[in-house]
């Protein structure tokens, strides 16, 4: 474990907590893409299948349980409890265009052709594009609540911090995982224009408004 990975995990944890607070406090999931949340739940389910078979540490297990529970819980809140506030009309990104290519790619490009490893690879590829429905929705509505933009900033930062973790591990541990690194770079790059808007607008107290 290193400071970059810990900061990344805490940023990821913060993002999920911010989202849960937003939905619970406002009792609404307006502006949030349910499709992205479904993809995140799939990411965690396919990645953490080794929850019971491969014990790394108490921290690792606790975080996996929290990520699994919170992502499934968020989908429940959005599609059942606060279903009436879910904005179907703007959450229209075709997620089959994300699921199929990532599934095929994980069958072709992986470290080991085994069920667990292919599911882990699929999860890594899917996570790199899972935010697209949410970014698409923000561009369609043209704006986002400030709490939603804080959520996106924390979520985008987590994988950016992981890139620093991979650089650290390469130089100090001689470890690197090219699949996670490439997917992590793609994932972080997808946030770049949002990061620009967040830093130039939201941090100055303005609302996140995309140029129409």
């Amino acid at each position: 474990m290193n400071i970059f990975r810990l900061a990344g995990d805490l940023s990821h944890l913060a993002a999920i907590i911010i989202l849960l607070i937003k939905i619970w406090k406002t009792r609404s999931c307006a502006g949030i893409s349910g499709r992205s949340q479904v993809l995140f739940a799939i990411v965690f389910i396919t990645r953490y299948l080794d929850l019971f078979t491969n014990f790394i540490s108490a921290y690792n297990t606790a975080m996996k349980v929290f990520f699994l529970g919170s992502s499934i819980g968020t989908v429940y809140l959005m599609y059942l409890k606060f279903k009436a506030t879910y904005d179907h009309n703007h959450d229209t990104f075709r997620i089959e265009f994300l699921l199929l290519p990532t599934a095929l790619l994980s069958l072709v490009l992986n470290h080991e052709f085994s069920v667990m490893e292919i599911l882990w690879t699929f999860s890594i590829y899917l996570e790199s594009v899972a935010i697209l429905p949410q970014l698409f929705m923000v561009s369609k509505t043209g704006e986002a609540e400030s709490i939603t933009s804080h959520y996106l900033f924390a979520l985008g930062s987590y994988r950016g911090l992981y890139i620093l973790n991979w650089i650290y591990r390469y130089y100090f541990e001689g470890f690197y995982d090219i699949i996670a690194i490439v997917a992590g770079c793609v994932q972080t790059i997808l946030y770049c224009d949002f990061f620009y808007l967040y830093i130039t607008k939201v941090l100055k107290g303005k609302k996140l408004q995309l140029p129409a």
């Binding site: 990975r5 990821h12 790394i56 973790n165």
Partner: peptide, 10 residues
Amino acid sequence: PSATVAHDEL
């Protein structure tokens, strides 16, 4: 030999 790749990152 298929070394099962143990992923220690979240």
